[in-house]
Amino acid sequence: MDLADFFANYGLIILLVLLLVFMFWSSRRRMQKQKLEMEAKARQTVPGAEVLLQGGLYGTIVEYDADDLDKPARVEIAPGVEIKVHSQAILRIVNATEDTVTEDDFIEAEETEAEYVAGVADGDVTSISDDQKRARDADGEPTDKPQA
């Protein structure tokens, strides 16, 4: 029996065994990587950390129990607005470099809205098109931007 006959008879079996070993090795490696990522996420998931939830909401963790994952986490999504979510609904910790909405953004938006409503109440602005007509740039030329 020469080498060609050996591979003709047992080559497919050897190939299948090698494929099974590779699949086992790669899945084990992937599981270890996921475990390390979950441990890193658990270390970073502390009250005060900004998070992204699976529903696409950004918020700040108020309460989180890493030991009991069945206990809901409390996340503040706006100043004074807290929601309870399943602890596994926290998709990831948001890096400080990412652009997120802050409390100052909410205050600024409320002030802008209040100024506009005050203009409407005083009769200065009767419609959005009137607001656009009154808007002027630094040179006094009309612009198409509404006045804030």
Rank of each mutant, 00 (worst) to 15 (best):
E108I: 15
Q88P: 02
D99R: 14
L57F: 06
A49K: 07
V51P: 02
L19C: 01
E113D: 12
P146D: 02
K71P: 00
T112P: 02
L36P: 00
I128W: 11
L15R: 11
V85H: 00
K35C: 08
R74A: 15
E50Y: 13
T143N: 02
L19M: 09
F106E: 08
I13D: 13
L69A: 11
K35D: 06
L15E: 14
Q34N: 09
G11I: 02
L19F: 08
M38V: 03
G11E: 01
I14C: 04
A49Q: 06
P47M: 10
Q88R: 10
L91F: 11
K35Q: 14
D105M: 10
R43G: 06
W25G: 13
R43C: 06
Y10W: 05
V81N: 05
R92L: 01
L19I: 09
Q44C: 05
R29W: 08
S87C: 01
E111M: 13
N95E: 14
F106K: 03
I128P: 07
G55I: 00
W25Q: 15
M23R: 15
S27W: 05
K41T: 07
V94A: 04
D130C: 00
E103Q: 09
T100E: 00
R136I: 03
R136F: 01
V101N: 06
R28L: 04
G123K: 03
T102H: 11
E39W: 08
T45P: 10
R134Q: 13
A42R: 01
V125R: 01
E37K: 13
V46W: 07
I93P: 02
P142D: 03
L19E: 08
G11Q: 00
T126G: 06
T60R: 14
L53Q: 05
K145G: 01
E63P: 00
L12M: 14
K33N: 13
E110A: 10
A4T: 12
L16F: 12
A8V: 07
P47S: 09
A96Y: 09
D2K: 09
D139R: 07
D124T: 14
A138K: 12
N95S: 14
E37I: 13
D105K: 04
V21D: 12
L15N: 10
L57A: 12
E108Y: 13
V94N: 03
I107P: 06
E37S: 13
I93S: 02
F6E: 04
L15I: 14
F24H: 15
F106A: 01
I77L: 05
N9G: 08
V94W: 01
A118Q: 03
G123C: 00
V81I: 10
Q32I: 12
I13K: 08
M1H: 15
A40T: 12
A78V: 06
L36Q: 13
T102N: 06
I90V: 06
A66I: 09
S27M: 06
A78E: 08
L36M: 15
T126C: 01
T97Y: 15
Y116N: 03
G80F: 03
Q32M: 15
I93Q: 02
K33A: 11
S127C: 04
A96Q: 14
E76L: 01
I107E: 11
V75Q: 00
L69W: 04
D5N: 12
Y116E: 02
N9S: 11
Q54V: 07
L91A: 15
I77K: 03
E113F: 14
